[in-house]
Nucleic acid binder design. Structure first.
Lengths: 341, 341
DNA sequence: GTGAAAGCGCTAACAG
DNA sequence: CTGTTAGCGCTTTCAC
């Protein structure tokens, strides 16, 4: 009995060549047998398959990549993955990728442009087929992104890049307007706002929607009640603290996932909020929002649709047609209220 | 002026060879220049660096992998990533990996052995350096895992594999015992339990700890109040529904993250729970547990320590020493109560 | 200080 | 039906 490579020795990698050597045939025959090519003798094929199976042969993705086949790797850049919205997004995207036999490499940017850049570099190195990313706030003059073969798909925010990008974005202007109207109907006159900084497309757009909503509701903007900053938990927490301390303010609308969580966290520690003398409109719809008090009214973000949008763009065969972008609608939702039209 | 490859044409990949060609030198010189080898003329090096910079040269990870350098890729297999515990784990691991210039490929298994197997195969193909995984329940006779060059690190649960594995596990027996004692002190006499099935090491161990706790507290086990099943949200939700319907039962302890969330979800819809006539001990410590009612007592899982444990194992130079495993302690925590000893 | 050759795993394009 | 060659991008080894 011959001693096959890897069976008794410290297992070297099993390759088509090692299999060919073991079986005393050419590595091309092994290649053909394994890839289902018709021109292989049935017995030979059987022997190869069996041997490969026994030794646990695994095709090298590196070799495939080097030959110019795709890597079937998708990159995903998110600020973090603890926030339930991002977690849901990552979860759904991972499942979708898996179903299409792709792999997902996740990088967390913490909304930091430097980390984002590093992540993109690493993804270029592994030749990811595409990258879905929530663009981090970009300081003026900072380096642009180079696509270099990867398809770039921006999520939620959009940023002008030199290389071609597509985007899946969110239209939340209507929902934010509805939120203002809802508060106005409820008798609120002095509504605050906390949102991402105006460096961000989303920051600009949401603030604009808020202001437009105020005007339509016939309310004045209280400039001291509008807080913008980096789109973080701390921003929300701190800003809501200030708003809660101002007796004149009686409600606040959040314009961002992390900001919303931070603001809620600040509220939960406030007797004023728990006493019901202050209203918070959240952003996003984590499962637990409805368990807090009587539930929290929110600008509802349809995660699945955002994932589907990205997957459709990825499936699209014409990566160069920048017209094929996706826009998804957010919706204002009040707990316990039937969904009308 | 010469037309450099990629500058005007449809950008082909920039390689050391293409750069060498552009500059009319050997690709070896380019390689040396880029990798900081001393034996390169200063001017040549400068020219190479500049040209590489301009064209956006990126080193091919595939070529590196094929030469047998590591891939610096870590695989992570989790049931899902929406559950806040897993999300926190993934988040922390991603950050730790990034800090060490590694990349994280995430696969979701949904606790399904088939999906787990597929994911491991894909990770072998890309030659991941290591895989951290929460072993899925394994049906008898199902295929074993082959490590094939990857280091395998089991998380939370441990499963006997043919190939060598290490683990970072959790000792929650004490905490579960404390939970029973706490309920007993609070006057509860009929305590239910919901946990993962006994196919899982964690399922067995937690149930055992619960039973031991009952005995130590001088309580009888009510067999009809012990529910085990797949470690899912639905299991928790359904089981807690049954327990809430049984007036004789006045408390329940959860033995699993998803189960705990499901049970809580069931409780939140129950007037009995909201009326305060039923106690729930959660498993894990999502941020929002403390915002629900007066907060929820839980078996607290130290995520950071679990991540650190895995990172230490990964950093370890002796992958063959199976003695180097990590065990992390869970702790029973009651909201609003000072942490004593 | 520079270059040519070989090889990592795999397949397309040719021979036989 | 099977085998040989060449090349994907890179570095190590050995010339010069």
């Amino acid at each position: 009995m011959r001693h096959f490579r890897g069976e008794f020795l410290l297992a070297q990698r099993v390759t088509i060549k090692s299999i060919a050597h073991d079986l005393g045939i050419s590595h091309m025959t092994v290649s053909r047998a394994l890839s289902g090519h018709p021109n292989v003798n049935e017995e030979t094929r059987e022997a190869v398959l069996q041997h490969a199976q026994k030794l646990g042969y695994v095709r090298s993705a590196a070799a495939a990549a080097m030959r110019g086949e795709g890597t079937r790797i998708i990159g995903l850049l998110l600020p973090n993955i603890v926030n339930e919205f991002y977690a849901r997004y990552a979860n759904a995207l991972a499942l979708a990728c898996d179903a299409r036999d792709h792999q997902l490499i996740i990088h967390l940017t913490n909304d930091d442009h430097v980390l984002e850049h590093r992540a993109l570099l690493r993804l270029q190195q592994v030749q990811a087929d595409a990258v879905v990313y929530v663009p981090a706030p970009r300081p003026r003059g900072s380096e642009e992104i180079r696509g270099s073969g990867m398809r770039l798909i921006q999520l939620l925010r959009h940023r002008q890049e030199t290389c071609s990008t597509q985007f899946v974005s969110l239209n939340d202007a209507v929902a934010i307007g509805d939120a203002v109207r809802h508060l106005a109907h409820g008798g609120h006159r002095n509504i605050g706002y906390i949102g991402g900084s105006e460096d961000l497309s989303s920051g600009r757009e949401r603030l604009h929607a808020f202001r437009k909503g105020l005007i339509q509701a016939g309310l004045e903007e209280r400039t001291d009640a509008v807080h913008t900053g980096s789109p973080t938990f701390e921003t929300g927490r701190r800003a809501v603290g200030a708003l809660l301390a101002d007796e004149a303010i009686d409600a606040v609308i959040c314009g961002g996932f992390e900001i919303s969580n931070g603001a809620l966290s600040g509220c939960m520690e406030s007797t004023r909020y728990r006493g019901g003398h202050f209203s918070l409109i959240g952003y996003g719809n984590p499962s637990y929002y409805r368990w807090i008090g009587d539930g929290i009214a929110t600008v509802d973000i349809p995660v699945e649709e955002l994932v589907n949008g990205a997957m459709e763009l990825l499936a699209d065969q014409h990566p160069d047609a920048p017209t094929h972008n996706k826009v998804v609608q957010a919706r204002f939702v009040v707990p316990g209220r039937n969904i009308g039209h």
